[in-house]
């Protein structure tokens, strides 16, 4: 199905619960964290959508609005992509885990948890994946400054864009 047909199909099922957006041929639905799990299950199990291939799950720092968690899946039978996006608060944001729907979500959720500080409810083992044990802080948040850039200005000719 192409992105517009998918959007209509999902809107028919969920109505106002999701805000769809089609950008460059890709459908992104933004949902509340309460509906996230329901939408993910539908996207996985519904026969018209049947997204069985797990692409990625990442976080995007949306500053004041919170941290957006983007789940991107693909269907090998219908050849379409769907992105499910949900914004959680910066402090204490929790989303249900989808590792039982797609096994690949296991590592992606661990990575998002350590880099952004989002907790995933129901995940078996939310330990640090990429960072060393002693690392403190959530590096991909915007307030995490790169110390090397603070300590010494970039000696090269121009800053990005100048």
């Amino acid at each position: 199905m192409d992105a517009d047909a998918l959007r209509d199909h999902l809107a028919a099922e969920f109505g106002d619960a999701l805000e769809p957006e089609v950008s460059f041929g890709l459908l992104t639905v933004t949902v509340e964290d309460g509906d996230y799990r329901r939408v993910a299950e539908f996207v996985r199990n519904d026969r018209e959508v049947s997204c069985n291939f797990f692409d990625f799950l990442c976080g995007v720092d949306e500053e004041a609005a919170g941290i957006a968690v983007v789940l991107h899946v693909y269907s090998t039978s219908h050849h379409h992509h769907v992105q499910v996006r949900s914004v959680v608060p910066r402090d204490g944001g929790v989303l249900p885990s989808v590792h039982d729907l797609w096994a690949g979500a296991d590592w992606h959720e661990r990575e998002t948890a350590e880099l952004f500080g989002v907790a995933f409810d129901g995940h078996p083992h939310l330990a640090k994946l990429l960072l060393p044990e002693e690392f403190e802080g959530h590096p991909l948040r915007k307030e995490f400054a790169l110390l090397a850039r603070e300590a010494k200005p970039w000696p090269g000719a121009k800053e990005p864009g100048e």
């Binding site: 990429l130 960072l131 060393p132 690392f135 590096p139 995490f144 790169l146 110390l147 090397a148 850039r149 970039w154």
Partner: peptide
């Protein structure tokens, strides 16, 4: 440290 001179996880 090379191209990753400003990374938070690289030993320079």
């Amino acid at each position: 440290g090379g191209p990753y001179w400003d990374s938070y996880s690289v030993t320079k």
